[in-house]
Write a protein that binds this DNA or RNA. Sequence first.
DNA 1: CGTGAAAACGTGACGCA
DNA 2: TGCGTCACGTTTTCACG
Lengths: 170, 170
Amino acid sequence: MADSVVLDPVDLRILRLLQNDARITYRDLASRVGVAPSTCLDRISRLRRSGVILGHQLRLDPAKLGRGLEALLSVQVRPHRRELVGPFVERIRALPESRSVFHLAGPDDYLVHVAVTDTADLQRLVLDEFTARREVARVETRLIFQQWECGPLLPPGPEADDQGESSGQS
Amino acid sequence: MADSVVLDPVDLRILRLLQNDARITYRDLASRVGVAPSTCLDRISRLRRSGVILGHQLRLDPAKLGRGLEALLSVQVRPHRRELVGPFVERIRALPESRSVFHLAGPDDYLVHVAVTDTADLQRLVLDEFTARREVARVETRLIFQQWECGPLLPPGPEADDQGESSGQS
DNA sequence: CGTGAAAACGTGACGCA
DNA sequence: TGCGTCACGTTTTCACG
């Protein structure tokens, strides 16, 4: 359950195409990959069962939702003990402004990716939700100019038929 | 095209449900939201056309793909001029290990989220792809212990009928 | 925004290399 | 064992009220 799974070229092509558009029909997918629909479905359900495919996610534009400003917050939680960090993480995750949270090795314990409406909103968020908490020892804020989601994360496939994709911001 | 879009409660419910499982059938979605399937489809295509929905993405498990170790690399690019940073970003984005790249305001110009097989692979990546480049002045590596993708990113709906949801990862 | 019908799709069972 | 062909129930999707 923990280790990696063998992926043949067909699996790789399927995953690559699904990453570009996860809502493509299995029939189109099969014809593009060059196998029969049933085979394609078979591969996908196997990939799903083996845990390679975790799920399908909708990608939304934060700017269109009134969250045109994004930032990364480096947070030190002191003392860094389980009783404190558990609730801290849960609280941060529940914020509508949070996009993702990383627990890191290093002097900065957590990195939080947030999306807010403007700098006033960011200030409010930092002051009210972070520095106001007793266990938060320090917060360092860095604005995000631009952001790119990177390719398929797939192992270097033997064939090279993929195309670039971009995801900019304001 | 740049500013935010008005979303009524139906849109919000649709987006919230689709974020949990983007491959739910529109029929189920419609019945859960409480509208007819055609209306549901209408809303979705409108959201897609207006740019709120950027696309559908597959979530894969990096560990299952032989990339069980993740890290954040803070990179200083000096001198920080367009002629240098453009190719730099493109090169980094093209790495199969790269998950996302942030251009930041602050002393660290870029933050790169990478997924590698092990520490040896990480060392190779840092040495061969980052510090080996002339424009890279400094690289700071932080390992990721754990990571959480956060909720719906949806605006604080005027009504409070939403239910808790979680999205964890090893 | 809902209804209904036609077209397309998902998803098994079955046979072939 | 794995893949392709076929067929059925379901879903998507469009024109219309």
